[in-house]
Structure formats: structure tokens, C-alpha cells
Design a protein around this nucleic acid. Structure first.
Lengths: 107, 107
DNA sequence: CATGACTATATTGCAATGCAAGATAGTTGC
DNA sequence: GCAACTATCTTGCATTGCAATATAGTCATG
């Protein structure tokens, strides 16, 4: 299981990416993350993160009724969020390059 | 530049890797990190981290004289540190797989 | 209709860790 | 003496993932 410290700064970008692919709500995001191999991202992680993204104007939200449960809060990425997502991709690649450089020397 | 949040949980593994390659001291580690593409890892980051690794028995240290400056503190990885390093590699690969899976879908 | 399971969101407070800022100290050369 | 470089350490802060807990709607089972 991926340690929580290693997710810092990564989760945000991943969630932005998921939201950018389609309008989606928190509960479904957590299921998608699981699907991609992020095991057990709890609600205590995901909802505060979504609120923070919303507060920083990287995503916007609207409530919609659900057939089987309370209202869902659907998120979309704003233009600012798209820029943030681009920046994340660049930073992630930079990190990847540095770590792989370090670990693949002498093999 | 790689954001500091993204280094959390990564730097430790990278520094263990560098120490495992040879006996080395803090100041030189920071230079190596720079070489691998980790820009500007400051002393306020590296020395507390090394002290923590030492305290957790993942590395050991001995002081040696230097020709041009104060004593250097040389570090080596302990067996426990080797295990930690292995675990890091596994976790890093797991993270990599998850993120790449997410970002390469639909391309 | 009561209970449990599942869906769905939110809040509080904690723990871990990278980092800026500042202190200390040795060596070398101007 | 002073600046520049080498070398280590400490304090306190900011960020962020997470456990725990609360709330509430729907649905099936008995």
C-alpha cells in the first residue's frame, strides 16, 4: 500500500485529472482512485481536498439529486484548474526523471 | 522545480539510496541530489532528515577530519536501512503505476 | 416498522515532513 | 580583518493525508 506521505502533492493532481475527464462527485472519485491502484483513500482525505480545490477556484460544484441517497455534489475543472493540472504533469515528470535517474544508475 | 509537498516520503528513499552507494556526508549528498535533478534541497531539509534516519537506526554515522572545513559526518546504511530502501522501491513503483495508469488512459 | 447496508458529504484534530531562517565553526586567500 | 566556501545543527512553520465521528437519504429483509 502506498504510504500516505508519498501521496502528498500527488493526490491533488490525480483528482484534478479525474474531474477533468468528466463531471463527477466525491464518492465516485474515491471509487475511481481505488480502480487505478490508489488503495483506501478515505473520505477524511477526499472531501477536505475537494473543498480546498473548490475554495482555490480550481474546481466548481453543483448539487444534483440522486435516485438512491442524498444529493451528490458534482465537480468540474475551471480554467485555473486546467493550468494547475498542466503544472502538475510537468512537476510529476520532473520528479519521475530525478528518481529514475538516481535508481537506474549502475544497472 | 519540484514542489516540496511532492517530495514528502520520496526524499527519504532517495537519500537512503545515495548513502547505500557509498559512505557519504550530508553536504555531499545535497550536491548529488542537485546533480540528479532535485533542485535546491536545503540544509534545513537534509540535516533533520539524516538525524531522523540515524535515530531510527536506518543509517549510522562516524565523524572524520576534513582538509578544508569542519569535521564531516559520514553515513552508512544499516541492514534495517536496506530493508527500508527495498520497501521504498516497491512503494515508488506502486505509486508510479497508479499515476501512469490514470494519466495514460485515453491516449 | 425497525434494523442494517449502502450511498453521500462534512468536520475536527492529529502526525509527518519539507523548508526558511538563523546559528556555529573551520579553512583559504585577498 | 573580511569574504567565500565548506560543513553541521536547531527552531518553528505550513501543508496535507487520514482516522474518527457525525449526519442523512434510500432500500431490502425480517
Amino acid at each position: 500500500m502506498i504510504p500516505s506521505q508519498m501521496l502528498k502533492g500527488i493526490l491533488e493532481g490525480c483528482i484534478l485529472k479525474i474531474i477533468s475527464s468528466k463531471e463527477i462527485y466525491g464518492y465516485e472519485i474515491s471509487q475511481q482512485l481505488q480502480k487505478y491502484g490508489f488503495s483506501d483513500i478515505s473520505e477524511g482525505t477526499i472531501y477536505p481536498l475537494l473543498l480546498r480545490l473548490e475554495k482555490n477556484n480550481l474546481i466548481t460544484a453543483k448539487y444534483r439529486e440522486s435516485a438512491l441517497g442524498p444529493k451528490r455534489k458534482y465537480f468540474s475543472v475551471t480554467p485555473g484548474g486546467e493550468k494547475e493540472l498542466e503544472a502538475f504533469v510537468n512537476n510529476w515528470q520532473e520528479l519521475n526523471h530525478a528518481v529514475n535517474q538516481l535508481f537506474h544508475v549502475g544497472e
